[in-house]
Nucleic acid binder design. Structure first.
Length: 307
RNA sequence: CGGAUCUAAGACCAGAUCA
């Protein structure tokens, strides 16, 4: 039994979810019962390797054989939501409750996020409002997912209200929360407000992180303020923060739109010399940019480099 | 009876498609 557990875990750790699954099946075929922990690690690795249907199969097949815990249900709910099956996510919740397990704040947060990302903001709000009845207290994660969901469907006022309520309830915003707030202001073209939030974030004890910088750089670019974006990029590097691929993509896109293709190219080279690997998005940005500028030689260079 | 440890939740980039 222990031997099989070890083998399954080893394959999970080396990201070979399919092999992990076949050893898991071999194990259960011999009537050896895996621990919840092994099951959970397997399910998560299947979900993460885009094998959700296999995870779903295991989940349905091993009910009553392996002991399912809150982690099991959390992983499955997230998997359902990430694959567009909101209805199945609620089915999973039902199974969980029928086994006598009560949802915790993680389960609820996962569901709320799933509703938001699948376009059911009303249900997300309902879940949020029901938490108190169930003795659950929304935390930083819960508020952040709902804020993000509200802003994604354009419910700005509600979002700002919720942000206020969060603080009144004594739940301190963290770096993720602040990034969501910075993002909504950037999307509205309100750069001053975005930088105000950044100040608030710093007062709250968080330094500007890569995501916040990326968001602000993107916001500036979209308002055609590329030079300021570039300045911010410089400031970022000055604070020992390493720009990531998204930083580069964002700024390259800004320079392409501003018709500063030399700058865009320079950043493209810089990213590679910093050990980053361009993504499909990077090439897309450059190809579109150089197409617009009528530079077919560069375009075919990029296309060739992509494969 | 009481501890300890382990596995689940959130933010940022280009385009495409369908309605």
């Amino acid at each position: 039994g222990i031997l099989y557990e070890t083998i399954v875990d080893a394959h999970v750790r080396s990201q070979q979810s399919e092999q992990a699954l076949s050893f898991f099946n071999e194990m259960t075929a011999k009537c050896l019962v895996p621990t919840s922990n092994t099951l959970n690690n397997l399910l998560e690795s299947l979900v993460e390797s885009n094998n959700f249907e296999k995870a779903w199969w295991v989940f349905n097949e091993k009910k009553g054989f392996v002991v399912y815990d809150l982690y099991t249900f959390g992983i499955m709910i997230k998997g359902c939501c990430a694959n567009g099956h909101l209805n199945r996510a609620f089915e999973v919740l039902g199974v969980m409750e029928s086994l006598g397990l009560s949802p915790n704040v993680v389960i609820y947060t996962t569901l709320i996020d799933g509703c938001c990302k699948n376009g059911d903001i009303e249900r997300a709000k309902q879940l949020f409002n029901n938490m108190g009845q169930l003795g659950l207290t929304p935390n930083q994660f819960t508020y952040t997912v709902l804020l993000d969901g509200l802003f994604d469907c354009g419910l700005k006022e509600e979002g700002f209200e919720l942000f206020g309520k969060m603080k009144l309830d004594g739940v301190l915003p963290d770096a993720h929360t602040y990034s969501v707030m910075i993002n909504v202001h950037c999307n509205n073209g309100r750069l001053n407000e975005a930088f105000d939030v950044l100040d608030e974030m710093r007062e709250g004890g968080f330094s500007c992180n890569v995501v916040a910088y990326n968001t602000l750089i993107g916001g500036l670019c979209r308002r055609s303020r590329v030079m300021e974006a570039e300045k911010l990029f410089g400031q970022m590097k000055g604070t020992n923060l390493d720009p990531n691929l998204i930083t580069y993509n964002t700024l390259i896109n800004g320079f392409c739109h501003a018709n500063k293709l030399d700058k865009a190219l320079g950043l493209f080279n810089q990213l590679k010399s910093n050990g980053l690997v361009p993504s499909i998005a990077t090439y897309n940005i450059l190809i579109v940019g150089f197409c617009r500028a009528g530079n077919p030689e560069r375009v075919s260079e990029f296309v060739g480099e992509m494969e």
